[in-house]
Amino acid sequence: MTMLGTPSVPARPQGEQTGPIRFTGGHHFVLSPDADWAALLAQATAPMSVILQVTKRCDFDCNFCSETMQMRDPSLADLEAAAANLAGVQRVFLSGGEPLLRRDLLDVFDDFIIGLPTNATRGVNVAPKLAGKIAFANIGFDGPREIFQRVRGDYDKVMGGVNAFREAGIPISFSAVALRSVLHGLPYLLQIADVLDVGKLKLILPLRKGNALDLPESEFITVDEAAEHFARLIELRTTHAWTPAVRMTPWTAETEGHMLVIEPNGVVRAWPVYDQPDLWLPLGNVFTEPITEIWKRYPYQENHVRKYLGASIMTCARTDR
């Protein structure tokens, strides 16, 4: 596996997948109609998706960010060890912090569907080098200019990065945190996503960690409120024939611990686990042991599979133009 330089890597044939699970143009997994998720879970030996933090550094300071604790970046040797030990995982998010702050991250693991969560501030410089190497970029994008600049940062710089990813032929998704003060902007955000041919708009509720500990209590909406706003957004989507897939993740018992996050030191943690410090449950270290062994001691396997198949969250599929 090469992590330095920019050798030619052919694009992955995302449309030629076989088996009970496929990865869609809406940038999420779906189960074949004749498949059974419970049987799939019983046979699983590794997670469907993991988040690998290649840095904790970031050039933004979002008011809802949960990842504020700093840590040394993993070395390229560390990442090579992680790649070997992640065999069996279908999708790896190369995440942060802001992953594009790593100037050596110009090539990626060839054996996975790679998602790149990013704020796109370095997109103008980096996007052309990532063409054909990632399946999609998941860009943090919270709404129209006023909302975006209030909760995240430089709207125009990020929009320049968004356009750079599009010009490089890299599919994009948007993710946004559903604070109460931004709910009025969600229809405009979905319209922006439609205009830019975004595959998916992912909405998540904030968690009380990191910067979000300083958010006023009024910014946290209930699951019932989230469902109401989601339903209204989907109604507008139908009315205006907007195309992106829309997903909203509430924090409930059904989604507890569904994510597996690998910190820069290799520690694999289930997240969010509500009775744990910082909402983290440590499970092992992927620099020194295979994910298949860590999976065996993971107590939220069912929540993981159900969430990534859209069974425990609010979903609306992408509509072809």
Rank of each mutant, 00 (worst) to 15 (best):
P144W: 02
R145D: 11
R145T: 11
E146L: 09
I147A: 11
F148K: 08
F148I: 06
F148Y: 15
Q149W: 06
R152S: 07
R152E: 06
R152I: 09
R152G: 01
G153K: 03
Y155A: 08
D156E: 15
D156A: 13
K157D: 10
M159S: 07
G160F: 03
V162H: 05
A164I: 00
A164V: 04
R166V: 14
R166M: 12
R166Y: 04
E167L: 12
E167C: 06
E167G: 09
A168R: 10
A168C: 08
G169W: 06
I170N: 01
P171K: 00
I172K: 05
S173T: 13
F174K: 01
F174T: 02
V177Q: 05
V177P: 06
A178Q: 07
A178L: 13
A178C: 13
L179I: 08
L179T: 14
R180I: 00
S181N: 12
S181I: 02
S181T: 14
S181P: 06
V182K: 03
G185Q: 01
G185E: 04
P187A: 08
P187Q: 10
P187C: 05
P187N: 09
L189G: 05
L190S: 00
L190D: 02
Q191E: 15
I192G: 03
A193F: 01
L196A: 06
D197T: 11
V198A: 07
G199F: 02
K200F: 04
K200A: 13
L201T: 08
L201D: 08
L203W: 00
L203T: 08
L203E: 03
L203Y: 03
I204Y: 11
I204P: 02
L205K: 09
L205I: 07
P206M: 09
R208D: 03
K209P: 05
K209D: 14
G210R: 05
G210T: 08
G210Q: 05
N211A: 15
A212W: 02
L213W: 07
D214N: 15
E219K: 04
E219N: 07
F220H: 08
F220T: 01
F220L: 09
F220M: 09
I221C: 02
I221T: 08
T222A: 08
D224H: 12
E225A: 13
H229F: 14
H229S: 09
H229V: 10
H229P: 00
H229T: 03
F230L: 05
A231D: 13
A231H: 10
R232L: 12
R232P: 00
L233H: 07
L233R: 01
I234Y: 03
I234A: 04
E235Y: 01
E235W: 05
R237H: 04
R237Y: 01
R237W: 01
T238F: 09
T239C: 04
T239E: 14
H240Y: 15
H240S: 10
H240T: 10
T243G: 11
T243A: 13
P244G: 01
P244E: 06
A245I: 00
V246F: 02
R247H: 15
R247W: 11
M248C: 12
P250I: 00
P250G: 07
W251A: 09
T252A: 05
A253N: 14
A253D: 14
A253W: 09
E256Q: 15
E256S: 09
E256K: 03
G257Q: 02
H258V: 06
I262P: 02
